[in-house]
Amino acid sequence: MSSEELKWTAVCKLGDILPGTGVCALVEGRHVAVFRIGDSGIHAIDNIDPRSGASVLSRGLVGNLGEHIVVASPLYKNHFDLRTGECLEAPEHSVRAHHVRVNGDDVLIALA
């Protein structure tokens, strides 16, 4: 599916997300964590921690593990790759990564 065929939803302004942090958005009824890395790098994954069922991943600590840009779940400290949604400690707990783009100052998400 091409970028033009996806259903894009504006979730916030780029300036609403401080670099190195995340926010939560509701996109088509799904909780999505949106992270800003540096000045303009944006990533989006599911916000639901698969071990607890709580909508908390957007509140986790962002960092690097090797070549992976990750967020650490605030509950169980599992690390999720922000590019792929893979849980590095337990791949069976991986989450979905979503399409994201910035149009002007708008952050847009399309569910994967």
Score class of each variant (00 low, 15 high):
95 V>T: 05
54 A>Q: 14
37 I>C: 08
7 K>W: 02
109 I>Y: 09
58 S>I: 02
78 N>A: 13
90 A>S: 13
26 L>G: 02
19 P>L: 11
18 L>I: 01
14 L>T: 05
60 G>P: 01
85 G>F: 04
48 I>F: 01
17 I>P: 06
99 H>P: 05
32 V>F: 09
70 V>S: 10
85 G>C: 03
66 G>K: 15
19 P>Y: 12
45 I>A: 10
54 A>S: 05
88 L>G: 08
10 A>S: 15
37 I>G: 05
2 S>L: 09
32 V>C: 07
63 G>H: 08
20 G>Q: 10
87 C>T: 05
48 I>G: 00
89 E>F: 05
77 K>N: 04
16 D>S: 01
4 E>V: 12
74 P>G: 00
19 P>N: 13
20 G>F: 13
63 G>T: 11
9 T>P: 01
94 S>K: 03
40 S>C: 10
85 G>A: 07
110 A>H: 02
42 I>Q: 10
55 S>Q: 12
25 A>V: 00
95 V>S: 11
112 A>V: 06
75 L>M: 12
95 V>G: 13
80 F>P: 01
37 I>N: 04
34 V>S: 05
5 E>D: 14
2 S>Q: 03
22 G>C: 06
19 P>D: 03
7 K>E: 14
85 G>W: 00
23 V>A: 11
86 E>W: 04
105 D>G: 06
65 L>H: 13
53 G>L: 11
66 G>T: 13
92 E>Y: 02
27 V>G: 09
67 E>V: 13
21 T>A: 02
108 L>M: 15
13 K>F: 03
63 G>L: 12
24 C>R: 14
29 G>L: 12
16 D>E: 11
94 S>A: 07
83 R>I: 03
43 H>T: 08
80 F>E: 07
104 G>A: 05
86 E>P: 00
84 T>S: 15
5 E>V: 10
39 D>T: 09
13 K>L: 03
16 D>F: 06
66 G>A: 14
101 R>A: 07
99 H>A: 14
92 E>R: 12
25 A>T: 00
72 A>V: 05
41 G>C: 07
112 A>G: 15
7 K>L: 14
76 Y>G: 08
1 M>E: 03
111 L>P: 08
74 P>F: 04
12 C>M: 09
42 I>S: 10
54 A>F: 08
32 V>A: 09
34 V>E: 04
67 E>Y: 12
74 P>M: 03
76 Y>E: 11
106 D>Q: 12
4 E>P: 00
37 I>P: 00
20 G>D: 06
38 G>P: 04
91 P>S: 07
20 G>W: 12
37 I>Y: 13
32 V>I: 15
57 L>N: 02
76 Y>A: 03
54 A>T: 05
64 N>S: 14
39 D>C: 07
37 I>F: 14
54 A>D: 07
8 W>R: 05
78 N>Q: 15
8 W>V: 00
50 P>C: 10
86 E>G: 06
10 A>G: 00
79 H>R: 11
40 S>K: 15
43 H>D: 00
105 D>Y: 06
109 I>R: 05
75 L>C: 12
39 D>R: 14
103 N>M: 09
33 A>F: 10
83 R>G: 02
53 G>N: 01
98 H>G: 06
106 D>L: 11
49 D>S: 10
107 V>Q: 04
85 G>T: 02
96 R>I: 01
72 A>C: 08
22 G>S: 00
75 L>K: 10
55 S>M: 10
8 W>I: 06
